Amino acid sequence: MRTYFPMILGLLLTACNTPGPHFRGLPATRVTVDGSTFDVRVRDRLAEALRVNPEYAPRFGPIRGRAAVAMQKVSGCKVTEVRGDQALATGLLDCGNGPPRVTMRPGSAYACTPVAALGSETEYECDPI
């Protein structure tokens, strides 16, 4: 039994950072928004933001907004709805008439900081890290 414990623990830990079935095999773009770090993947009119950093008891409300910013920055599309939970969020994209315009290089990492508040929307600028 003791010989199986490290193997079981390893399998459980590797499952913590696994994309959903629709996004498997796609490279992730790592984006940090207001202290939350996400691996973002885009396929068709959907985006997935998988939170990869530890945060103490986050509520989905603030995480939802940060995930939406990350998905919008990576896809180049407006995020119309975010579903999911604190760890894994899926966004519905409105890209107009064309496909998503991926604006950040997959496999890279970016940090997004707020630069201006326009009405109820905050504008973010993202730089490679």
Results as ranks from 00 to 15, higher is better:
His22Pro: 11
Arg43Met: 10
Thr90Pro: 03
Ile8Gln: 12
Pro106Ala: 08
Cys126Gln: 12
Val79Leu: 02
Leu12Asn: 08
Phe38Ser: 03
Ser75Lys: 09
Thr32Ile: 09
Ser36Ala: 15
Tyr56Glu: 03
Val42Asn: 02
Cys126Ser: 11
Pro62Lys: 05
Asp85Met: 03
Pro106Met: 07
Leu88Lys: 03
Ala68Lys: 00
Leu118Arg: 10
Ala57Leu: 14
Ser75Ile: 06
Thr37Tyr: 07
Arg43Gly: 05
Ile8Ala: 13
Leu9Asn: 11
Thr32Ala: 08
Asp39Pro: 00
Thr113Ser: 12
Met7Trp: 15
Leu46Val: 03
Arg83Asn: 11
Arg59Asn: 09
Pro21Gly: 02
Val33Ser: 03
Glu55Lys: 04
Val31Asn: 08
Asp127Phe: 12
Arg51Thr: 01
Ser36Glu: 08
Thr113Asn: 14
Pro58Asp: 02
Tyr124Ser: 02
Val52His: 02
Cys95Met: 10
Gln72Ile: 10
Asn17Gln: 15
Leu93Asn: 01
Tyr124Cys: 03
Ser75Phe: 04
Glu125Ala: 12
Met104Trp: 02
Arg105Gln: 15
Gly98Leu: 11
Val69Gln: 06
Asp127Tyr: 13
Pro100Gln: 03
Pro6Phe: 10
Val74Ile: 08
Leu12Val: 15
Arg59Lys: 14
Thr3Tyr: 15
Arg59Ala: 07
Arg30Val: 15
Ala68Val: 02
Ala15Leu: 00
Cys126Val: 09
Thr113Phe: 12
Pro100Lys: 00
Pro6Gly: 06
Gly35Glu: 01
Leu9Arg: 13
Gly10Asp: 09
Val115Gly: 07
Pro6Ala: 09
Arg43Cys: 09
Tyr4Ser: 12
Cys95Phe: 08
Lys78His: 15
Ala87Leu: 00
Gly84Cys: 04
Ala117Asn: 13
Pro54Arg: 07
Ala87Tyr: 00
Leu9Thr: 13
Ala89Arg: 00
Val79Trp: 03
Glu121Ala: 14
Glu121Thr: 12
Pro100Ala: 05
Ile129Lys: 11
Asn97Trp: 13
Gly35Val: 05
Glu121Phe: 09
Cys77Asn: 08
Asp39Ser: 08
Pro114Glu: 03
Ala15Tyr: 00
Cys126Met: 14
Asp44Asn: 09
Thr14Cys: 07
Arg30Met: 15
Thr32Met: 07
Thr18Ser: 08
Thr18Gln: 11
Val31Ile: 13
Arg30Tyr: 12
Ala89Trp: 01
Thr37Asn: 05
Gly61Glu: 13
Glu81Ile: 12
Tyr56Arg: 08
Cys95Leu: 10
Pro54Glu: 07
Leu46Thr: 03
Val52Ala: 05
Cys16Asn: 11
Ile8Tyr: 13
Ile129Gln: 14
Pro128Phe: 06
Gly91Ile: 00
Val52Gln: 00
Leu88Met: 09
Asn17Lys: 14
Ile129Ala: 15
Gln72Phe: 11
Tyr4Lys: 14
Ser36Arg: 04
